[in-house]
Every structure is written in structure tokens, then in C-alpha cells.
Amino acid sequence: MENVVEFNNVTKRFKDFSVKNIDLQIQRGFVHGFIGANGAGKSTTIKMMMNLLQPDAGEVKVFGMDYKTHEKAIKERIGFVYDANVFFENLNLKDIKRIVAPAYKHWDNTLFTQYVEQFELPLNKSIKNFSKGMQMKASLAIALSHHAELIIMDEPTAGLDPIFRRELLGVLQELMLDGNRTIFFSTHITTDLNRIADYIAFINRGQLVFNDSIHDITENYALVKGRTEFLDRDTEKAFVHINRLSTGFEALTENVSSVKRTFGDSVVVEHATLEDIMFHLKGGLQHV
């Protein structure tokens, strides 16, 4: 399996926050979801992937190349979508295209026109008068029109209505028909991921908790509910995090089989959603 992006022990420190020792591999040909609470380090990680930030330690490789020596070659092959509009807001889409298109060797005007039609985008209207959804579609049309192999998106579905989110996922799935493409996107709307993501990376307080296939996640993690008296120092070891309530406990395990061995049928074992996992790994109720 070829890795499109590789983070090796990457650290970036800020005054009040840091992203520490990130080891992240992104496999070619798959959709990778990137989840974590607000301020967990998602944007910092994406910025390092785009070389908008340089790590203090460790190395970032994209397509096996280093930004220090191959910045242009790397960025030629990346399509990017950010959550906020980065395009000159006073310009219309036609002018923005005139600025962006010549930057890429493989810009495909026919493809761009096709996306503009598909997304029903006006060419002569200032981008600042676009709705959030239209701005997003415009970014997407630009990101997809130079045959990029890696599409990096920071919160692409934030602030979009469910119908457009569904539409967007359809567009992304169509891109994935080409097995050479890779999509990496951060989000906190986890239902988007359940549909199309192949791998999920989860970052919490600046540290990468896991980066696994959705199968491994659904097979390993589970939500366990039961009576509080079943918990003791020994049985607690089976859980990553436990919420004790007056009505019983709810806990997250990353080892379903050991829970089944320990508790048998005395507890309820349920499929854990990504949200359940995020919530419990973040520390659950106690820290909120």
C-alpha cells in the first residue's frame, strides 16, 4: 500500500497549544476522515500537510517528497478546500479562475466548466455574495479542475444543509472511482464519515489517538452498559472510559472480546458510533 502522506513524529508548538509526535499515514485510493473536537489540532495538522506551517520537529512527506525541495511538484497534485472562503471576495468566479488556472500545469478548463454547470454556479457574481454552500461548491470546482490526486479539505461540510452535504458526498464518491485518488477531510459531522470514509484518524488534545479502517474501529470499539456493581478495579481495566450514572454505567471499550469474556451476558454491548468514541475518549462527562 502506497502512502500519499506521511507524518513522522511531527511536533508543532504554539504558546498555549501544541500538536505532539504525530505519526500519520494516508493510503492512496481511499477516503480518510479526520475527526476531533474543536481546537484538538485538526487545522494545524492540515496546515502542516499544506506547508502553510512548518513543523518544529519531525518530517512531513507528501507523495514521498519533501516540501523543502519539491514544494511546487507536490502542490501541483493537491486540490484544497478550506472552511472559510480564501478567494478574493470582490472578484467573480471567472476572475478567480483566471488567477488560479495558470498556476497549474494540468488545469482542465472543460472539466471546470462542467463542474460550474453541475453545481449551477454563476460566473459573474462576486464571491462575497455567494451563500456558504455556493462558496463551498466554488472552492470544490476549483479544487477538482486540475486532476489533483490528493484532495485535502478542512471542514468542507460545516454550515451546509443536509441535502447539499449528501450531494457533496456523491461528488466525492464519483471521484473515488479512479483508484488513484485520495481524499483527506476533517469534519465534526460524523454521519458524513459513516457513509464514505474508509479510514478515520482521530486527534485529541494535539495527539493522534488512532488512524484505523472503519472495520477495525467498529470491530474493536463498543459501548457497554450495565449495573454499576459489576465494576471493580479489575473489570474496569476492560474500558477506555467509564461514565457512572445513578441508573448504571456506560463505558467505552476498545476490546470487545475481552469485555464479553469478563462480563458475559450481564451487560449490554452496543455498536459505538464515532460520536460515542469521540465523546468518551475526550473524557466524557467528567471533564465537560
Binding site: 458526498l169 473515488m176 470514509a197 474508509d198 479510514y199
Partner: peptide, 8 residues
């Protein structure tokens, strides 16, 4: 794509 599920 047809089933709207992940490739994996």
C-alpha cells in the same frame, strides 16, 4: 458509489 458506502 452505487450503494453510497465506503470503498473499503
Amino acid at each position: 458509489q452505487d450503494l453510497q458506502i465506503s470503498v473499503i
